[in-house]
Design a protein around this nucleic acid. Structure first.
Lengths: 241, 241
DNA sequence: GATGTTCTTATGTAAGACATATTATAGCGC
DNA sequence: GCGCTATAATATGTCTTACATAAGAACATC
């Protein structure tokens, strides 16, 4: 994970809280801590690690807000079994995010994941799931055809559509990554939909979604590889202009 | 974000820490707190909110680890500007927690990411990085040609090779995911290398790596898409047999 | 047997003290 | 005056102790 020589591990940096987080994380990686497991109590952890309870608390709180742990008063702290979304408002990320070199990395990851989802989806064949996508596509049509609050309705429909597509890949990990990426790209996507709707390119947006459905329905892996990159990421295209 | 009737707002939930987080995020959303801005000191915040400093700290720590805030000792806490790598940590934990019951998903993700790395690498062109990959390939050759502890040497060389390849994509997020996935697939990969070496298929292993290098050197995107899936994941092939 | 009371447990919150890293400033010698 | 070092000021980092509170369990009550 680090590309620094192992022998100069952590004379500095590596705060107490970080160390506690690492210990807990290692436990999860090694399998000692599995989803559903109960952690020792905070005082016990503090004693074992030789740190203050406040430090343990900061660590567990962080992991809690990431959706990794779950604390129940009077019961204890547990490794969470289903993962929830992060409790931080996606809007906040939007405030911070838009700029920076690493944002490009995020967009690349997004493309990689979303194309991957389509490829997996084609392999797996899920008639019902595909029907759901079709339904979401139709809802998207009506959203675009609306008279007021079109952008908002379209954005909502867009998210629902992509959720349905994401489910098609039948891979919880990939879907999870997709959902996080979509959360982090929340504001860009919202702006894109907004500007496209406002500038009367709603039909174009719709067409892009329809193409995705067609490819999925036709199981056209070739097209996915070759052409989707040019139509799927409208916001990326916009950025280049 | 909530779909609960408004009138039962929050008789419960809404802890002190959560309230502090909400105040801060509201400030960011409203624009009172912009990227780069300095927050009041922890004692000041505590006094203003009428809560303990520990609660303020838990809130800011959480936001810090989410990549929203940045704390610098003796200077203060600031709204971070730009993308923070830690923002994808929730996703990483999602991968870690899910590995146990969903090994196939993990392997699919691995393929997706590693093929993605190759594609990105071809786009980005990094002569020095490519030379490093070549060097690692040569080290792999000598490792396989060794007389004792071949499997271990080969495995180590294999990891070094893939690290070098991973760096080629110049995308910290993708590389991070790759490293986590590789960490979680550690034992499978180790077993694969071991059995292949032990059964005298070392040359085959080497050949697979050489092919990857050749594709990268030739910038052969086509081959990556079409053929790599059949040679890259030897362990996956083994599993199917 | 259902209801209410107490007791236990572990997290939630508070308050104060000390440690430490970074910056700014004052002092000192030259 | 210039440059160096020592010191103080500042704000986060960590530790300690104490108490509040929610949820469950055991028990008593009607």
């Amino acid at each position: 994970m680090a590309n620094r020589p192992a022998y100069l591990k952590n004379l500095k940096s590596e705060s107490v809280v970080q160390r506690v987080i690492n210990c807990l994380t290692d436990g999860m990686i090694s399998g000692e801590l599995k989803p559903g497991d109960k952690l020792p109590t905070e005082p016990e952890l503090a004693a074992n690690f030789g740190v203050a309870r406040t430090s343990v608390r900061e660590a567990t709180k962080i992991l809690t807000y990431m959706g990794v742990l779950e604390s129940r008063r009077s019961e204890g702290t547990f490794v969470s079994s289903g993962f929830q979304e992060s409790m931080i408002d996606p809007m906040v990320y939007g405030i911070i995010l838009n700029k920076g070199d690493d944002f490009d990395s995020l967009m690349e990851l997004r493309e990689l994941i979303e194309v991957g989802i389509l490829q997996l989806a084609v392999k797996k064949e899920d008639k019902e799931g595909l029907d759901l996508v079709k339904k979401k596509l139709e809802e998207f049509e009506t959203a675009v055809a609306q008279t007021e609050d079109v952008a908002q309705a379209a954005f909502q429909a867009d998210n629902a559509f992509h959720d349905a597509v994401s489910a098609l890949c039948k891979n919880t990990l990939v879907s999870k990554i997709d959902s996080v990426v979509r959360m982090l790209t929340y504001s860009v996507r919202w702006e894109t939909v907004q500007t496209m709707i406002d500038s009367g390119r709603g039909e174009e947006l719709l067409e892009a979604h329809r193409k995705i459905y067609d490819m999925l329905a036709a199981k056209d892996l070739q097209q996915i590889d070759e052409r989707i990159r040019n139509t799927y990421f409208l916001d990326a295209l916009d950025r280049e202009n």
